[in-house]
Amino acid sequence: MDNPSSAWWLSVVDGVLHFSGADLPGVYIPVQSVEKSQDDNHVNIITEDETFKVHISKFQVKDIRFNYLQDVSSRRKFCDRLEKLLPQLCSLSESLNSEATADQLSSSGASKKRSFREEVQMMRNLHPENNDPDKLGEFLDSSNRAWRQACVTFFGCIDRENQQKDEDLKAENKRLRDENEQLKKENERLKRQKRHQDVFEYAEDLEQTEPTVRKTYQRKVTAEVEVHLEEAHKKRRIQKEKEERYIELIDEIIREDEAETTEVTEAIEEDNEVVENIQEVTNEVTFSKGEKITAFWEDKNISGWYPAVVLRVNKNSYYVRYFDGVKSSLKPKDIKKTAN
């Protein structure tokens, strides 16, 4: 088997694991061991004469007893599962192929507690279809339903009879569900038809109503419409009054803001006039460097006008020296001419 990507499978014959594949049609080779390969997702099938490297994704289940190995994704898990499964398969094959006598089911023999596997072996060997080669890997039917289900679960066998019954039951359930859906749809259709019929009958009754009753009904509807219209007009009037009130409040706020703005503007203009007057008065008197003046002095202890001399004329101030040697920078308003 030169192609590692070809399909392959395993089987147990006479208690021995055998290997075969798509490249080995009809050939079953006894297996000595199955080991992990150095390549990912590959295992090595070791036989007496040759070693086959195969991909685990290409493993196919030809024997239902190997279902446990299907869809395994790693080489380590495949080898571990096969190692656990192989002893059971080999021992089961040996026990199913062994002979059993009626003495094993006698009362003296039955007194000894048997395992479930031993009971299965005896039941199979005593079954009338035991020698049928076509049913070697299948379940042999029994009237004991609980025992039959336990065997199917324990050995992974195929219960052909019950499988067919289950399929028939599923088909019957599907048919019943389809019928139920059809009944639901028909019920919905009848309901719609009934609603339409009720509407038509109501229209016919309305046409046959006496004129006085019709007029009474029309007056009642007209009165209800008038009430709704009156309520709508009332709400509209209330809304309009609110809007007018909001407009009046906004106008009042605007007038107040305009008045405040006018007052502030007038105050600013007055302040500007005062500043201009001060600048005019201040600009009338100027001093030059070395000129003797009277300068204002103020600290936490004393304050007053004292003799001083202008040392330097700045842009908006004068740098002076007082009579006691103290120097300071003064604004024009803190300086005046010395009295003669």
Rank of each mutant, 00 (worst) to 15 (best):
S11H: 07
S11R: 14
V13M: 01
L17R: 04
H18K: 15
F19R: 03
F19P: 05
D23N: 14
P25Q: 06
V27H: 11
Y28W: 10
I29F: 00
P30F: 04
Q32L: 14
V34Q: 13
Q38V: 15
D40V: 11
N41V: 05
N44C: 12
I45G: 10
I46Q: 10
I46A: 07
K53H: 01
V54N: 03
S57Q: 13
S57I: 02
V61T: 08
K62V: 09
D63N: 09
D63W: 01
I64W: 10
I64H: 13
R65P: 04
F66R: 05
N67K: 05
N67M: 06
L69H: 07
D71M: 03
V72C: 07
V72W: 04
S73H: 12
S74P: 05
F78I: 06
C79Q: 08
C79G: 02
D80Q: 09
R81Y: 15
K84E: 15
P87G: 04
P87T: 07
L89A: 04
L89V: 05
L89G: 04
C90N: 00
S91Y: 00
S91E: 11
L92K: 08
E94L: 09
E94I: 09
E94M: 04
S95H: 03
L96S: 04
N97R: 05
E99W: 02
T101H: 14
T101K: 14
A102S: 08
D103Q: 08
D103V: 03
Q104N: 05
S106M: 04
S106W: 00
S107G: 06
G109D: 15
S111Q: 11
K113R: 14
R114D: 13
F116E: 06
F116K: 02
R117Q: 14
E118Y: 00
E118I: 01
E119G: 11
V120L: 08
V120T: 06
M122E: 07
N125G: 14
N125E: 14
L126M: 15
H127Q: 02
H127R: 01
P128G: 03
E129Y: 02
N130H: 11
N130V: 08
N130W: 01
N130T: 03
D132T: 06
D132W: 01
G137M: 10
G137R: 14
D141R: 09
A146C: 05
W147E: 12
A150P: 01
C151K: 02
F155Y: 15
G156D: 10
G156W: 10
